[in-house]
Write a protein that binds this DNA or RNA. Structure first.
Lengths: 343, 343
DNA sequence: GTGAAAGCGCTAACAC
DNA sequence: GTGTTAGCGCTTTCAC
């Protein structure tokens, strides 16, 4: 579990016939080194296969070039969802480009929260990216108390999150606006009884999408709203319920593609033609789900990977150079309606 | 991106009226400290909220208490799959229990491989856990060259992986044995024309499952084998092909649950009753897929999370104490047939 | 049992 | 421009 003696700055310096300081400058891209020398140093670095010791560097710079990604996992579902995978990928790309390490913190249960808090407060990373899933999640609070720079993925559930952006900004997509667009599209198709299958209402994304639906359909018949949970099974359940309570419905806006796919299944089973009898719109544009659906799903697209990338970029604002210096501020990414066959 | 001045060993020592060395001993659980002193030190630690500086510690111990998890991502599919999520969770649990950090390395394309190689060779982590997906994946080779202790998830594709366990053992499930059990089950049901939908045959798991199928059905009619890709869409495609080439088939063993679900859809569409006309068995026992399937899927269960845990445990063998010292050796976890309605 | 002291490999003042 | 030097916070001999 320990390694071979690896070459140090000292060794490179000796090899190149310069001082350690010079090597350090070259390695760190300090421009104030004569080109001929720099060349010699780079040569020595290559020959020896020198790689800087991050621990030693951290010790003096007090930076770590590492950020923690915190994923609370109240349910298994969370992770089976391609959502996190995509966001992680975006984050990873951005961090990699800046040579920053990704330390993954998965939590499970209460004690874990404390552990994460300790780790973050311990100052082992330069910042944290966290996903706040549930309105009552204690993690955001713990993270804030750890006083480590943080960017949240998705609007956190506490009351004044929007006003709090200095402390901990978030990146989200325009859930509410996207939902509005979806519902308007259905209304524009001439549908008069547009139902909604919500997500789990302890998550801000689900709440925001419901709000968007209500923005367009003020005073909507409550029988047209059924609670789902972002899963196909939940979508099926909700669809059955809707069909039972409001058999005359002619459109459904599902809070995500997964529940839409469940709804489609039930509609097919009940012999309702889509989109002729019932038009269906989803949310997410999860390709494998939306495109494979039968019929292919009209849905609200959000760029999940981009959200991840943006989170990382915001956290590292000021690092990596070319960023314009800017105040921390929440970012809400636009959504776009993607028309396919279902509506 | 830098932190407040955090208390050091020195501060704790002053507070407790002892030397730094003593504090260090207490913090690291060295038994050779008088209990009264130790108590005083622990007190000071709590009061000051002292957390050891990992960088400083690494610098002298030459350990990092961190391991890299390398996930090559040739296709998006890979990650959308709950498989990795589960394995990651197992790994995370085990590492957390030993206070070892998880550094996530996602790769994308050729240049990334080199980057990962450099990182691993750079000696920033105590070891690596890697998933070898494809037979021709260059990553395993790169990782081995980096000379960092490694455990693979899934049998790597190189020819003599089994013999190579000293260098880099792997953890896998008994793909071949599980496949045999599945096929024997179908045969035991009296099915005489058992087809197989394979996974992508550049992955060892898919190859091994196909081999297991062939172990039971030696000299099987080649028209009964169709290549899938572990996705529902691939399963549909393969099922259609099979139905076309061998309409008389009365059973299907699909290489995973996802393709089985695609196959089920096609069978339903074609009016073949399951299991009456065609019995279906999957592989993985991915609960949300297998249980929700219609009819619920008989399948071969593997404990994915346990595989992850085991990988971590093997890598850290010797650390954390209570493990029996043992030679590195490949581990093949057993599988179990789970009977549901589809066969 | 406990403390003093010597670094681990690196960066950042500060001289030259 | 380049080298010299003083630590960063910790563990670990080695005396006591």
């Amino acid at each position: 579990m320990t390694e071979e003696p690896r070459p140090t700055l000292e060794a490179v310096a000796a090899r190149a016939g310069v001082s350690r300081a010079t090597v350090s400058r070259v390695v760190n891209g300090d421009p104030g080194v004569r080109e001929t020398l720099a060349e010699r140093v780079r040569h020595a670095v290559d020959e020896l296969g020198y790689v800087p010791n991050r621990a030693a560097r951290s010790l003096v710079t007090r930076r770590h070039d590492a950020v923690a990604v915190v994923i609370a996992e109240p349910e298994t579902r969370v992770f089976a969802d391609p959502f996190f995978a995509l966001q992680l990928r975006g984050i990873s790309k951005e961090l990699t480009a800046r040579d920053v390490q990704l330390v993954l913190l998965l939590t499970e249960g209460r004690d874990d929260h404390e552990r994460v808090g300790r780790y973050l407060a311990g100052g082992h990373v330069d910042g944290a990216l966290a996903f706040s899933l549930h309105l009552d999640d204690p993690l955001p609070g713990i993270i804030r108390r750890a006083a480590v720079p943080t960017v949240f993925g998705g609007r956190p559930g506490w009351p004044d999150a929007a006003a709090d952006e200095q402390a901990a900004p978030y990146v989200d997509c325009d859930n509410r606006g996207g939902a509005r667009e979806a519902v308007r599209h259905l209304v524009g198709l001439g549908r008069g009884r547009v139902a909604h299958i919500t997500g789990p209402l302890d998550q801000t994304s689900a709440v925001d999408r419901l709000d968007g639906y209500r923005d367009v359909l003020v005073d909507v018949d409550p029988r047209l709203i059924a609670e789902g949970d972002f899963t196909p099974a939940g979508g099926e359940r909700a669809m059955r319920e809707l069909l039972h309570r409001a058999p005359e419905l002619d459109a459904v806006f599902a809070a995500n593609d997964l529940s839409a796919s469940g709804a489609l299944r039930v509609l097919r089973e009940r012999g309702r033609r889509v989109p002729d009898d019932v038009a269906v719109v989803g949310f997410d544009d999860m390709l494998p789900v939306a495109e494979q659906a039968d019929p292919p799903l009209t849905t609200v697209r959000q760029d999940i990977e981009e959200m991840g990338r943006l989170m990382a970029r915001m956290l590292l604002r000021g690092k990596g150079g070319e960023d314009v210096a800017c105040e921390p501020a929440n970012v809400v990414l636009p959504t776009a309606l993607v028309r396919r066959a279902s509506a």
